[in-house]
Design a protein around this nucleic acid. Structure first.
Length: 339
DNA sequence: GCGAACTACTATCCATTGTG
DNA sequence: CACAATGGATAGTAGTTCGC
């Protein structure tokens, strides 16, 4: 396709995007405000043009061919940019925005920042729907494909084209149940020996072992036993409250849920030298100039700013790498960088 | 297992619109 | 005015679900 674009190409682009997003002729027609035969015609033309069926029947619905899957993010990007050309930058009004955003984050982020963020969005943009999914290994791919609008987590190994903005600093603390049999109630900081002797709960939303803490231990020639790995922060805290396990976790959620769960917050061993880390939001550059998306990003930043600095030192260094599991900023995952 | 009902896509024909 | 492209109306086909 080296010939210049014309008006029908743009219409075809819109039809292709709707087809690839909905995987349905009927759904695309609804989205485009056309009849199904009109979209079916458009699909036939696209099929001829690409020399590929693009959508094939699968039971009651349709599925994308590999070629269509490959086209999907590129078409999304192209259409978003084209849409921006026609957008009046001065006309954006959050109150009249009717739109759905899909956000990827951990239950920790939801628990700590979700309240203020939700209140802001509801008050200023009642027509906005928010869908939250759990951080996953394919967060970057989902951003590229347009399946996720914004990701919040601790990321290092991301494709270079993605935009990242640090929104808040966090640090790690250890928690155990109040009446822990081994640790005296007056104890404020764990020794390294206690840390490696006790059995651990680890938060691993993506199910992968290891992480920042294990890397630090390995550098010191030690290892710990992770007896339980679970995907959710709240669950990990509850498990810790009803066992003798030790949990290393972000300080904010430990302070927030610790008292009601009967948990004690302890400083990690100083030998470990666990650094504060930055929690970031990540988005695809196609949304850079999108007024609605920009507004949503601002709401998230402002929701976290009220919390930042209350009880936390700024990071001594800006962590540029770690792990979206957020519990323990990881260096290991940085290296495996899929893709 | 069979058939009706339902959903979703395709084929055909026709109207409209833009271009030369 | 002829032609091409696009889109709508209608009828038909194909696959799934559900009740008997």
């Amino acid at each position: 396709m080296s010939t210049p674009l014309d008006a029908s190409d743009l219409a075809a682009l819109a039809a292709l995007d709707a087809l690839l997003q909905t995987s349905s002729v009927t759904g695309a027609a609804r989205r485009l405000g056309l009849s199904t035969p009109a979209v079916s015609h458009a699909l036939a033309r696209l099929r001829e043009r690409f020399g590929d069926p693009l959508l094939v029947r699968a039971g009651r619905g349709m599925v994308l061919t590999p070629r269509a899957e490959q086209l999907r993010p590129r078409v999304r990007d192209a259409l978003s940019l084209a849409t921006l050309v026609f957008e009046d930058p001065g006309a954006f009004e959050p109150a009249s925005m009717e739109r759905s955003f899909t956000l990827s984050m951990t239950d920790y982020v939801l628990r700590v920042f979700g309240g203020p963020f939700e209140a802001r969005v509801r008050a200023a943009a009642p027509g906005v729907d928010l869908r939250v999914i759990v951080n996953a290994v394919d967060d970057a791919e989902r951003l590229r494909a347009g399946d996720t609008d914004l990701v919040v987590g601790i990321y290092g190994a991301l494709p270079p084209e993605l935009r990242t903005r640090a929104i808040i600093s966090e640090r790690l603390v250890c928690v155990v149940r109040e009446a822990h049999p081994v640790l005296a109630p007056t104890k404020r900081r764990l020794t390294l020996r206690q840390f490696v002797t006790l059995e651990h709960v680890q938060i691993a939303p993506r199910g992968q072992p290891g992480g920042y803490v294990d890397d630090r231990l390995a550098e010191l020639g030690h290892a710990r036993r992770v007896a339980r790995a679970v995907p959710f922060f709240q669950l990990a805290l509850e498990m810790t409250a009803s066992s003798d396990y030790l949990l290393t976790v972000s300080e904010r959620i430990a302070r927030q849920l610790g008292p009601e769960l009967g948990l004690r917050v302890l400083e990690p061993p100083s030998e470990l030298g666990l650094e504060p880390y930055a929690l970031s939001m990540v988005w695809h550059p196609r949304f850079d100039a999108d007024a609605g998306h920009r507004w949503l990003r601002e709401q998230l930043v402002e929701s976290t700013q009220a919390l930042d600095g209350l009880s936390h030192a700024r990071p001594r260094r800006r962590l540029d790498a770690s792990d979206p599991t957020a519990g323990e900023a990881s260096g290991r995952r940085r290296r495996k960088a899929k893709n």
